[in-house]
Amino acid sequence: MTLIKKTTKTLVLGVALLGLAVGASSWTNKIQDNTWYFNSNNPSDITDATKWTMADPSLSGCTTSQLPPLPCQLPTPEEVDSEEALIEHFDTVYDNDADDIKAAAQTRRNP
């Protein structure tokens, strides 16, 4: 009886801990403090940080589909709050790969 009680206790504790970890992971995924907007109609500008702005240019036609060739909104961590930080972010996180940046964007659009 004691063994069953102990095993159940361990299992409950373990499941609670793993649930907490999944919750914490989902929560950190949601916290993206800054949003950058791509403000160009040229796909070759995607890796150019000067073509991105933190102010929403309110471009139309942004969808969640993977197909359109241009990114619209790109979520970034809080510290990516300047052009220099965005250059660094593109370099370290996406290795300046336009496809990776487009894939990470929340929405995309046609030129």
Binding site: L18, A21, S25, A103
Partner: peptide, 24 residues
């Protein structure tokens, strides 16, 4: 339990962002 939390946290995070993770 610290290891369990850490691995579940990072494992779940990688699965959710699988596309970026594989491309990276």
């Amino acid at each position: 339990y610290g290891y369990a939390f850490l691995y579940m946290f990072t494992g779940h995070n990688k699965l959710v962002n699988m596309e970026t993770f594989v491309k990276g």
